[in-house]
Write a protein that binds this DNA or RNA. Structure first.
Lengths: 156, 156
DNA sequence: CTGGGTGCAAAAGGTTTGCAACACT
DNA sequence: AGTGTTGCAAACCTTTTGCACCCAG
């Protein structure tokens, strides 16, 4: 339970990178929010709120480091801010995201259904896929329920 | 052949928007480069190079307008700049992109292979997909050939 | 004519960088 | 001790905005 940082510590050590307090803090925030997709600004302000005088520059630098070492993955929702999430070390490549156009919720989806498309890319274009980013935009269950309810109310 | 702008003109008219010279120019550049994915900066500098004193602000405003009316689609390759491309009016939703990690080339792919994933999203999460953005990162045919050639050379 | 559209320049984000001070190893 | 890291602030880059002027309808 307390060893969640071992992947990180090991990766740093084997690359002769330093295990600093700031890096641990950032990794900790990502771990605590591993089911969420935090923006850089959110990560920074969580730490500032806790009394850490960490600078934004360090947050950016550390996140870039984590991404480079494939310990975190970057998610760009085309709304102008980049989000980060710890990357599951078991994943072959990145998972998919369902983005609700109403409430903004992001649902992670594990799926190998892209295998077919990857094969097609190779067959038809000679393109060898190494990673993919799939974002499906639509309306989540809760928002659909909410909307069908208010539709019924407005009909009265 | 000369009527490629009719979709655009019609859409403007039916929304009582004005058919200005600048809008025509921008639409023209997108049409000439319809197989490419131009950044805002590229579109702007193409026009400036041709002697048009158009401002970046207008380019941004017009592209936003085109996107809003689904005449163009925005592509965000997570490299900090947004790209635009005219949208095929027959497409159900956006097509997929194969992005080469070596040369940066972007290949468009039409495919309905996402239908399976969309059904899965609905079945498992109650999530109704309305659009999707799929980017597959990998290595294109040409770069693979080039690399295998230089591999062989370095072996000598 | 009249209001939508444009150019300009300033402002507003978000992200990067140079440099001196700091702190892991 | 030595160098990788950090904080700070300035620089950067892309995108947005306010406003006076302009032009399509």
């Amino acid at each position: 339970m307390e060893d969640y940082k071992q992947d990180f510590e090991q990766e740093l050590q084997s690359n002769s990178l330093r295990l600093t307090g700031q890096r641990m803090l950032i990794y900790g925030v990502l771990w605590e929010n591993r089911e969420k997709h935090l923006t850089v600004e959110e990560i920074h302000s969580i730490l500032v709120r806790r009394g850490s005088g960490i600078s934004v520059a360090t947050v950016y630098r550390t996140l870039a480091l984590l991404e480079e070492h494939r310990l975190a993955s970057r998610l760009c929702l085309d709304d102008g801010c980049v989000r980060y999430q710890l990357q599951d070390q078991l994943e072959k490549h990145e998972h998919h995201h369902l983005v609700c156009e109403r409430c903004g919720k992001v649902i992670d989806v594990m799926s190998d259904m892209m295998d077919g498309i990857e094969q097609q890319a190779l067959d038809e274009y000679g393109f060898q896929v190494r990673n993919h980013r799939v974002k499906l935009y639509g309306i989540c269950k809760e928002c659909r329920l909410k909307e069908s309810k208010s539709d019924k109310l407005s009909m009265l």
